[in-house]
Write a protein that binds this DNA or RNA. Structure first.
Ligand SMILES: [Mn+2]
Ligand SMILES: [Mn+2]
Ligand SMILES: [Zn+2]
Ligand SMILES: [Zn+2]
Lengths: 147, 147
DNA sequence: AACGATAATGAAAATCGTTTTCAATTATAA
DNA sequence: TTATAATTGAAAACGATTTTCATTATCGTT
């Protein structure tokens, strides 16, 4: 896949060696529509590279995060899952049922930030915005779950 | 303090007993302007109740969270700190230097949520918004740190 | 005020996710 | 092909949180 290849190129460019273990981890994370925990990456990547160790997953995620290729995703259920990093100014919209995550952009909240900052004597320098809901596929399923 | 007393009343109302350990923990968390981790609560509460055990801090925080009196705060440095719960629809503004946290309200992002939801076929049901910056006291200090 | 049922406590042990250590393996430049 | 240094996985260590358990303390009842 394209993104996968790009990550490998980046790793190489930063002096890291390309190994089977890294290829497997990169492939899994780069192509995931859901945020994955280290163990989830481990389980998925072992199908392509059975000798993989969980330690190597941790080490590879750490490097990918340093290079800005992935980012940690905070959710109610936990804060140790990773997704490909946002492109520019984007935020996440996450399905509460299946975990599918999409980035959106086009939010302009600078006026709000200025107002709130002024009201409390703060200078606002960063913001987190994240939306949760139900994706198209899961909307009917949730009704089914309830009934 | 007023909030502290209210929390104790709530605990009692839900069938929990009022103990020295609980009073100490409640007092510390209810009156904190910063989000506190279990160990921070432990250290602060022991000055009022030296026999306190860290386990009891965990157990008390768990109950306060169940009762909706406190909430977990997610930050870059960690996601295991607690603050008194927001009142109604409020979000946090946190100082990146001293950790001081204030709630703000008056944000209306429903139009944004509807637009983003439509664009991706999602129904948006929840949102997280959190601002980070420098409080009035810390703005000059940060310049000093840099120079 | 004293009692008794039982909730709550703290110390110690267990558990879980993550990190470190280390000897063996492997990628890569020469 | 070789040499070097990065990378690996297994095992041990670690730190935060949870569980276990015997003891203590709260609080409704007497
Ligand atoms: Mn934004
Ligand atoms: Mn809001
Ligand atoms: Zn978090
Ligand atoms: Zn500050």
């Amino acid at each position: 896949m394209a993104e996968s290849q790009d990550w490998l190129t980046q790793l190489k460019a930063h002096g890291y060696r390309l190994t089977g273990a890294r290829r497997a981890v990169v492939q899994v994370v780069a192509s995931s529509a859901r945020a994955l925990t280290p163990v989830e990456v481990y389980d998925a990547a072992r199908t392509a590279y059975p000798a993989l160790g969980l330690v190597t997953v941790y080490r590879t995620l750490e490097k990918l995060e340093e290079l800005g290729l992935i980012q940690r995703v905070h959710q109610e259920q936990g804060c140790n899952a990773y997704l490909p990093h946002a492109q520019g100014h984007q935020h996440l919209l996450i399905c509460q049922r299946c975990g599918r995550a999409v980035y959106f952009d086009g939010d302009d909240l600078t006026a709000l930030f200025a107002r709130v900052g002024d009201e409390h004597g703060f200078v606002v320098r960063e913001h987190w915005l994240q939306l949760f809901g139900l994706c198209a596929k899961c909307q009917p399923e949730v009704n089914r779950d309830v009934s």
